[in-house]
């Protein structure tokens, strides 16, 4: 079973995503971090026991942004692919996320699309929400 690190600061949103990942995606949620700092701390604590197949990262986080976190994860843990998740569909967020090293961008209001995006990235591909493709 694939393990997901979820980085989401909104409590209700995080609970909903955990439920979706477990029931719809059949994924294991390794941890839920409320900030970029918490996520990095958790990752460094795992050391040799680190078993994370993908990081699902919210764009908007307190203090350090999700985009900056993706950049740091790519530097320190290049084996962990990152998928951005957000309510914001603005093109500049998508571009900046991909430039930081994210393997895709999915929108929160379509959870089937979120699960689909995770599966694509786990298989080695990149993924953009269908709504983003339509807006472009």
């Amino acid at each position: 079973m694939c393990s997901i690190l979820l980085v989401e600061d909104h409590k209700i949103m995080a609970e909903t995503l955990v439920h979706i990942l477990r029931t719809k995606g059949q994924f294991n949620v390794a941890d839920v971090a409320e900030s970029a700092e918490d996520a990095l701390e958790w990752l460094s604590e795992q050391q040799a026991d680190l078993q994370v197949d993908l990081a699902l990262v919210d764009v908007v986080l307190p203090r350090t942004s999700g985009i900056e976190l993706v950049s740091m994860i790519q530097q320190k843990y290049p084996g962990i692919p990152c998928l951005m998740i957000s309510g914001r569909s603005a093109g500049q967020y998508v571009k900046r996320s991909l430039a930081a090293g994210a393997r895709g961008y999915v929108l929160k209001d379509d959870f089937q699309d979120v699960v689909k995006g995770i599966r694509h990235v786990l298989e080695g591909g990149t993924y953009l929400s269908e709504q983003l493709n339509r807006e472009e």
Partner: peptide, 10 residues
């Protein structure tokens, strides 16, 4: 964005 919208998504 950070609160109301998230609740609606959930």
């Amino acid at each position: 964005h950070d609160d109301l919208q998230q609740r609606l998504f959930a």
